[in-house]
Design a protein around this nucleic acid. Structure first.
Lengths: 317, 317
DNA sequence: TAATTAATGGTAACCGTTTACATTTAATTC
DNA sequence: GAATTAAATGTAAACGGTTACCATTAATTA
């Protein structure tokens, strides 16, 4: 594999001229520049990133730290990962996946962290020397990327109300993270605004548990009812419950999910949901982090994506 | 961040002694060794991988090349990715994701490739200078990791036959790759062995298409029937078809999937499927590749995993 | 006891790039 | 036209490790 020196030798110039052509082309005369470009092309020159990393005291490695206890192979995270990886690749960074079980963080230029619990801020994140971007809203002042969770939940709740159903239950995940609190708030405020009673049920993020819970409710219920769920997984569980009891969706029971990553399209009938542009958000995480690194750790602020209401067959025909 | 020289200074020895303690500890006397160890611990020394990469002419980067046209955020690939990433991390390698759209491969120490089409072997893989491990069986002599696809399909087909259903349709993916041919073979041979007529229908890997196709069949059908599918996604489509027509699963219609990665547990009723230990297989890909790199590209042979039949509610009650 | 050998530790150069500084050449000024 | 300045290119050292070789010291041998 050709090096800078090889290119220089071929073009009969010094290494420095080649380096300059790459990094500060305006400092090199047009003729030499062209000479060097040709030489690079002929030798198929690609810089040695390890050598660059060494002089710049960088690693060219970004770590993606998934603190979530549950399955790290969850499509949600994996879509995020895909977005991050695609963006990093373009800027010649590479990626390392770190889970809570990895004992040390090791060398890297920056981290993207997700699935933080309350204690993680003090125990892990505040100790990090490298620039960090969090995936998921937080009130601790760390730069983050997220969707507007509250707004999203307002949108679905209003969507249900606009379709003439006033009995709306909220199924959420029993997890003490800001994104969940925001989703609860979005639902609660919308209900209170209409003088309706919020009914909140928190459970594990499992379609089977949601199904079990919903079956209990539906067996006693005799009015039109809607379940606003904080994830597509929960939504699918509710759909299964209604189907098992022979109830019509969306006639008797309306259901909505949240995420719109994968499951919403698998469910039958297809789930009305709030879509998060996860891959895009992953890319943004990487971009923000790389910019932050370039700017020596300067605060980058947050990127809050507008949620998108995807209306499908569990709320309308 | 402490360097080798820092450690040496603190221990009052030369850089070389420290380097030796790390790489060839037996060449250093016990006293000095201990001194150096203490010094390393106190300074929290972590080697600079970029510097190592530079001297060894390595990059410490492995590329994961996904040639599949379809959605790279498919859980199947993502689980594979997770396995690879976990293993690489432990051996201080990092990962770059490359898709067909990336125009160049760039520098790396080795590649894991998946989703190859027939033409890719000549156009892409044979040109690679670095060691390669393929994910997915092939007859071109490249080292690969895969599950025994033929065996898997034999297992499910026999499972259905053992449960007293002789009318068995095969739903496969219209893709010209060895894994698919092996799955077809597994089904075909088992059917022919029992003097039964194989019926093969290839389609896009979409649950909705499978549903559409299955509904057409089920509307005309009046005997007990089974659908052996080449993916869980297709299996889910068939389940939906049966449900829409009010047929009993597994009483009237039996369904099986293939993969057992994610969808099988989401479906309701839960899908009988052939499980592939994808995360494990991903780890194996990485291990094989890293060993191959250490052994200067030596042939590593293949790793073929035994498929596991997961019997659930779409074939038994 | 002198000569040889093994065990141990040190020195210098190199990997491929960039930064800092020095030099050459040409262009501008008075 | 000599002095000053700007533009273009080159030289040397550094980044943090490793490899290859050299220098001690101690142990073994004849």
């Amino acid at each position: 594999m050709a090096t800078l020196s090889d290119v220089a030798r071929k073009a009969v110039v010094s290494k420095m001229t080649v380096s300059r052509v790459i990094n500060h082309p305006e400092q090199v005369s047009a003729e030499l520049r062209q000479l060097v470009y040709n030489s690079m092309k002929e030798l198929n020159y690609v810089p040695n990133y390890a050598a660059q990393a060494l002089v710049h005291n960088r690693t060219q490695v970004i770590k993606f730290l998934i603190l979530e206890e549950m399955d790290t192979t969850e499509p949600y995270y994996m879509n995020l990962l895909a977005g991050i990886a695609i963006e990093l690749d373009q800027r010649h960074y590479s990626l390392q996946l770190v889970t809570r079980s990895s004992h040390t963080i090791g060398r890297c230029d920056g981290l993207i962290v997700t699935g933080m619990r309350e204690t993680d801020y003090d125990h892990i994140i505040s100790h990090l020397e490298q620039p960090v971007i969090l995936f998921g809203e937080n009130k601790k002042g760390y730069d983050y990327v997220d969707v507007d969770n509250k707004k999203g939940m307002q949108m679905v709740t209003e969507h249900i109300l606009n379709h003439g159903c006033q009995k709306i239950l909220f199924y959420g995940i029993e997890i003490d993270e800001p994104f969940m609190r925001s989703r609860i708030e979005g639902y609660e405020e919308t209900m209170k605004m209409k003088q309706l009673l919020p009914q909140i049920n928190l459970m594990k993020n499992s379609s089977h548990i949601a199904q079990f819970e919903a079956e209990k409710v539906l067996q006693k219920n005799h009015e039109r009812i809607a379940f606003v769920c904080a994830s597509d997984r929960l939504g699918i569980g509710v759909v299964h419950a209604a189907q098992r009891l022979g109830l019509n969706i969306p006639g008797d029971v309306m259901v909505t999910g949240f995420d719109g990553v994968f499951l919403d399209r698998i469910a039958q009938p297809k789930l009305t949901t709030i879509r998060q542009p996860i891959v895009e958000m992953g890319k943004t995480c990487a971009k923000l982090l790389l910019d932050k690194i370039d700017q020596d750790g300067m605060k980058q602020g947050n990127r809050i994506y507008k949620p998108e209401l995807i209306i499908r067959n569990t709320t309308t025909t």
